[in-house]
Nucleic acid binder design. Structure first.
Lengths: 121, 121
DNA sequence: CTGTATCCGATTGGATACTG
DNA sequence: CAGTATCCAATCGGATACAG
């Protein structure tokens, strides 16, 4: 079956898919959190540690974002048997699937910064 | 020079780069607008047409987002000699550099949707 | 048509204090 | 430590009217 050149169903589908991604991974913090957990998967990343090291995020936002990410199976929450209680957050296998995306964000940002410098802005 | 395992400068640099990208391309609309202009580069995309076809965006937001994108040289604005005046928006060469990123957003969204369906959510 | 200006409700998100 | 609850300021963003 043939599709019209300028309004193919594929275009709408792509748009829909993009909106899905932006809904799940969008906002100011989610991708930064995933990046954090991916690059520090060899460590015990507790709530407190994350809040300290992801500069600028408040407890309220970190709670909310981690909850969202957990609901989408991108992050795993595991309560430790410590006193006082600590909670370990880890990236899930599915969460890793955002790795390429994150890497591209990093790459694009680096290139953009260079462009700004060299274009004298 | 050697870097520590768990807190390499590279990690901070990556974080910084990500924040840069999220600042320039982040938010609800910018990537959708770039996607729109990339996929319809063979057409005359006017303000009105864009507002009609990018579902849900208001004039106010479209104005603001286009201005931001233009300031970052991702989008080009060109006033046409028509009566009444129309304005054509096009993607710039630099704007195209976000193409891979956008494609990954699309791909991830499609995969995510499939995952939701097959995991019975 | 392409915006801008204004009003105003809704949402975001920080600060602080508090609970288990 | 890991959050929750509350207050409150700032911003977001739609609707409408208007200007060039």
């Amino acid at each position: 079956m043939k599709t019209l050149k300028n309004d193919p169903p594929e275009c709408s589908l792509n748009l829909l898919a993009m909106r899905d991604t932006l809904e799940v991974l969008g906002g100011k913090w989610k991708l930064l959190i995933l990046h954090y957990l991916i690059t520090r998967d060899d460590q015990i990343n507790t709530f407190k540690k994350m809040q300290r090291e992801i500069t600028g995020i408040s407890a309220k936002m970190l709670t909310k974002e981690l909850k969202d990410l957990e609901e989408n199976h991108l992050v795993h929450r595991e309560q430790q048997n410590t006193k006082p209680i600590t909670v370990r957050y880890t990236i899930t296998e599915y969460g890793r699937s955002a790795g390429d995306l994150i890497q591209q964000l990093v790459d694009w940002g680096k290139t953009h910064r260079i462009k700004l410098l060299t274009s004298g802005q």
